[in-house]
Design a protein around this nucleic acid. Sequence first.
DNA 1: CACCATTGTTGTCACCGCATACATTGTTGA
DNA 2: TCAACAATGTATGCGGTGACAACAATGGTG
Lengths: 194, 194
Amino acid sequence: MPSYHHGNLRAALLAAAERGLREHGADQLSLRELAREAGVSHAAPRRHFADRQALLDALGEAGFARLDDELRAALTGAGPGFVPRLHAVAAAYLRFATEDAALLELMYARKHTEGADRLVAAAAAPFGLMNDLIIQGQTENILEPGDPQRVGIVFFATLQGIATLINGNLVAPDLLTGITETAVDQFLRGSRRR
Amino acid sequence: MPSYHHGNLRAALLAAAERGLREHGADQLSLRELAREAGVSHAAPRRHFADRQALLDALGEAGFARLDDELRAALTGAGPGFVPRLHAVAAAYLRFATEDAALLELMYARKHTEGADRLVAAAAAPFGLMNDLIIQGQTENILEPGDPQRVGIVFFATLQGIATLINGNLVAPDLLTGITETAVDQFLRGSRRR
DNA sequence: CACCATTGTTGTCACCGCATACATTGTTGA
DNA sequence: TCAACAATGTATGCGGTGACAACAATGGTG
């Protein structure tokens, strides 16, 4: 016999929302449906999220946290060399992006509310990881000197753009590996000191 | 006294939808509101669009057509030199992308319906333009030999990724010019024959 | 001019988000 | 230990939506 207090409703709603997002996309996510899945009344979610958009923003924030985790895990497995680390980050990014396409869309959607500040703040971690990696390349004289923030943003943008084209059915998924390697190769031979 | 037959309802709905998209974003677009603006009953739009998603797909298709027009116009104004043409295309892409951020989201959203085939087909034109530009660069020995499709897709992805970061408030808009120039510079110096 | 296709209208249903008022339980401080 | 308050539920209401079905009006065609 379930009690009146769920006890962990916010987390349960987010978990259900991630499943729903994966299966049906963001447009089909509904607070009422999530409430039914969690076994509470339809108004209960509004005690944990100001509105539907706030729940979507929370999903996006969790997405950037998980992206950061996966990029760091990829770096750990790649060893100390800059070039293998760059390849590892690119591969991990695109794996995350193509496996969780609907979440990616949420993460990068235009932000309408002030409540999206936490989402934007969460993005700083993977951006910082990329920045640090560029600085490593420059310190080791593999990359030319230059503004690491700009260089890192361009590389990050390239990965995100590739994911968008693949997820949007504008580029065939079987081209992914080749395009990713072309992207890293172009990035390196363009920034590599001569 | 308006007649029973609107006479040009499909075009009127699309025009109203573009205005609504620009002002409020895709999420706030509603068939009933568009019908009211066009002065017809709420069910009339369904005579021209199978459902709401079909209208959104039509907007995306028009977006790719307009993007292609703007890229070609930029090329016309850039003269024959490959490098100025590349810069012109990059600038025109990002101008379009940042001025019509909501439309851009629609163009690149994940496609759920079979009806999105026309949208994907419409994307072929700007992709083809980019492909042709890469071939020009390779023919003139400014770019290294290589698969022009892959190279063009990576460059296209980079521009789209930059637009996504800017439009998603993940990168400050005032960084746009510098990042775009860095992107073109990295692209050239990476693919430029040495 | 009749018939058919196209394109409208009216009405309905089920769903939704959001808001308000009230109810139940958990926590805290005296 | 208990009262007060906060947190977190429920019930109800409202206005809007998308999609669908049945019917109506007009335009085009043979």
